[in-house]
């Protein structure tokens, strides 16, 4: 032991250097993870700042867009059918008789919804629902075509899903009179 101590006494500078080296290595070893942790933290913060910047860019003029969009939504909502107002809804379709000089023989509000608008359907609705009407109308080809066009142009939001047009078989029908069976889907308030 004394021999070693004697030897170390021969190299005091080397001993001091070795002690400093060991100390430095120990500190580097103990604090080695600090830099890695800080790098991870820095990367997370950079990503967060980037997201915030993207949000700022994306939200440019968003308030005006939202206000404008809410205006459209209010217009849509005002034009929705209420499925409980059956008489009003039915009268709406019969009103075309006077407008177009067409004979509407039947308007039926069906209880089943259009499967295309139900959950899993190709045009699934989540904020609205669809009411299906079956309408039978008689008139000339021109009148029926006009009726179909008016349905699309109506204030209420509706479209003809299916139709069947054929030569009228009604008694006393004038020659050239056609019958139309229309399946109309109307956008309505959510159930």
């Amino acid at each position: 032991m004394n021999l070693i101590i004697d030897k170390l006494r021969d190299y005091p500078l080397a001993v001091v250097g070795a002690l400093v080296f060991i100390g430095c290595v120990a500190v580097v070893f103990v604090r080695g993870d600090v830099v890695d942790d800080l790098l991870v933290q820095e990367a997370e913060l950079i990503a967060r700042i980037r997201t915030i910047n993207d949000n700022v860019i994306d939200s440019n003029n968003l308030e005006q867009d939202v206000e404008s969009l809410l205006g459209y939504v209010a217009t849509i909502d005002a034009r929705l059918f209420n499925r409980n107002e059956r008489s009003i809804n039915t009268a709406f379709f019969y009103s075309y008789e006077d407008k177009l000089d067409i004979i509407i023989s039947n308007v039926s509000q069906l209880t089943d919804e259009d499967p295309a608008l139900l959950k899993g359907g190709p045009n699934e609705l989540s904020l609205h629902s669809g009411i299906v009407y079956e309408i039978r109308a008689d008139g000339t080809f021109q009148q029926i075509l006009e009726f179909m066009n008016e349905i699309l142009k109506a204030d209420a939001l509706m479209r003809i899903a299916n139709f069947e047009v054929y030569a009228s078989t009604a008694q006393g029908a004038a020659p050239g009179t056609l019958s139309a069976k229309l399946r109309i889907v109307v956008l309505a308030e959510k159930n």
Binding site: N55, V56, V66, S126, L157
Partner: peptide
């Protein structure tokens, strides 16, 4: 911004449904 974005998304959904319809 996120609140506005969420409001926009919800409002847009109504218009998207109209297009789907």
């Amino acid at each position: 911004s996120l609140k506005e974005s969420e409001r926009f998304r919800k409002s847009a959904q109504s218009v998207v449904e109209l297009q789907d319809f």
